[in-house]
Structures are given as C-alpha cells and as structure tokens.
Design a binder for these strands. Structure first.
Length: 282
DNA sequence: CGCATTTCCTGGAGGC
DNA sequence: TGCCTCCAGGAAATGC
C-alpha cells in the first residue's frame, strides 16, 4: 500500500464554506488598508492597478458559490478566490512571517491582521470584478447548480447523459462544488459505482444519490471539512471530517459497512475509492 | 454539441 | 545525503 501523501485534501465545497463563514464573521465591515500583490499572474479579470482600486473599499460580506470565495466590496466590486488544489486563504497577524508562495496580502482596518492568499501549485487564482459590466475573465467560467439547493426533479434530469456518474458529478458546469473526496463518499453512501452510466440509474437511485450528496456535504461542513495534509481554515485550523470518511483514502482497509476491502481504481482520470460489495459495478 | 484526454504546477515520496 | 523521477488533482484547453 503506497500512497503519495501530497495534496489529497484539496478544498471542495465544505472546506470553502468553512473559510467563507469564518471570514464573513471576522472581516465583514473592515476596510482594505493596503494591498501587496507578490505575484501578478495569479490575478485575472479586470486589469489595472489592483492596489489603488482596492484601497479604501470595505468588505461588505464574504460568501461562497461553488468552490469560490467572494469578498463583496463596498461601494462596489468583488474579489473572488479559487483555491485550486493547494490554495489557502488565511487571516493572520501582520507580523507573522511570510510563507513561500504567498501571492496576495490585504491589510485590514480594525486590528493588525492580514488576509493572505497562498497557493504553491497555482491551480487556484484571484479575480477582481470592479462592479462594472460583469467581467468573467479567464478560468472563471459558467457554474452549475449548488448541490445543497438542488431539487430532486432537476437532479434527476441532469443525469440523463451517457457519461460515467463520477465524471458528471465532477463537472462544475453541471453541479458545482463537489470534488474527488465528496464524490467518492456520496457514491459510496448511495451504493453506486463511480463508473455507472448516469442515464442508466433509475429515479430511485438518482434521488438516493442526491440525498447522499446533501447529507455528506452538510456533515462535512459541520466538521469544518477534511484535512489529511494541506487544507486549513481561514483561522489556520485543520478540518476533522476525515475521521468519518468511509472510502476516501482507505484503500486496503475494511469497508465500515460490510468489511469488504476498499479498492482504489481510476475513474475520469482520478483516483477513486470504492467498496466493491456496497457499490457493485454495473 | 457531447464526452474523453491532455495540460498546467509544485512538493513530497521512493529508488538508487 | 542527494539527485532524479513520478504522482497527486481542478478545470481550461484540446481532440475526436
């Protein structure tokens, strides 16, 4: 059993929700006092001198949509963060030493704290929308439905496609927010094999899958997400949902439901963890 | 258009 | 110890 231990806990919906809630609590109402962009190419969208544009604006609220974090600014505009695989968005004392690959820092009023965006692998990024015409920019495309707000009938209709169910659940233009971890956990809970063809699932199986997705996501949010290695909340703390994983990263271990050994297979180009008994292949 | 595959990037881990 | 290679993954880009 040999695992590569790096980057197996990339931020998905529950992790991003945890960060957004903490930041909303802690920085809403505070003003951007200073801006330090250490690496320009992580910034997309509206061009121009970010520092001058951001300084003096107030953070109105912090919200999550899909895996993105939106700092809604006042009087207008938003700063949008995507954490990719290795990204972190943390609020730290200004005097804390700067970690490598920290690309953007915002000094905030009302205390000597700094909001820092760090992303070693740079699969994430930052977008600035100055509040004019909506500027989507590179790598900030159309988003699918929010899984926690999704109605069963709409979800059933979404599955009328020939793709493997896991590939479909990972497609952010269809359903936005799930990544590798919560896909595998949801499919296991629903008793569906990741290679099952979506349109071959009957209505009852589709409904069960949506219920499983919602249950898993809500529970993961409650435990502040999953941390094996990299993920940290805005306060720098790890999540604890990994304790409740039933398949993810448990290759060779016994299924908690039936004692069968969990397998690791490749689906849609991703490592996938499956109980062959609970999730029979089609 | 739909779907599958490739590509980007870095650090950690294993081999020697 | 240290160099070398491989592998992880979100989602855009490319291919069929």
């Amino acid at each position: 059993m040999c695992f590569f231990q790096s980057s197996i806990d990339m931020p998905e919906l529950p992790e991003v929700e945890t960060i957004a809630r903490q930041l909303d609590e802690r920085i809403s109402g505070r003003r951007v006092v200073d801006v330090f962009l250490h690496r320009g190419d992580i910034l997309h969208g509206e061009p121009g001198p970010l520092c001058a544009l951001l300084k003096g604006r107030r953070v109105q609220s912090v919200r999550r949509r899909a895996k993105r974090i939106f700092l809604k600014l006042s009087p207008r505009g938003s700063l949008v963060f995507h954490l990719g695989m290795s990204g972190r968005l943390t609020l730290v004392p200004q005097e804390d030493s700067l970690e490598a690959h920290t690309h953007l820092c915002l000094d905030l009023s009302g205390g000597s704290e700094q909001l820092r965006f760090r992303d070693p692998r740079r699969f994430g990024g930052v977008w600035f929308d100055n509040g004019g015409e909506v500027h989507v920019g590179r790598r900030l495309g159309r988003l699918g439905a929010e899984p926690l707000e999704l109605a069963p009938a709409k979800f059933r209709a979404m599955l009328d496609r020939k793709r493997q169910i896991k590939a479909l659940l990972l497609d952010q233009t269809i359903i936005a927010g799930l990544g590798n971890i919560y896909c595998d956990e949801s499919l296991h809970r629903a008793g569906i094999h990741p290679t099952a063809v979506a349109q071959a699932l009957d209505p009852a199986a589709r409904d069960k899958l949506l219920r499983s997705i919602k249950t898993i996501l809500k529970r993961a949010i409650k435990f502040n997400g999953t941390t094996f290695m990299d993920y940290r909340s805005a306060e720098g703390a790890p999540g604890s949902f990994q304790k409740y994983h039933r398949v993810y990263h448990r290759e060779g271990q016994a299924c908690k439901g039936c004692d069968t050994m969990i397998e690791r297979i490749k689906v849609a180009g991703r490592s996938s963890f499956v109980c062959p008994a609970c999730q029979p292949a089609a």
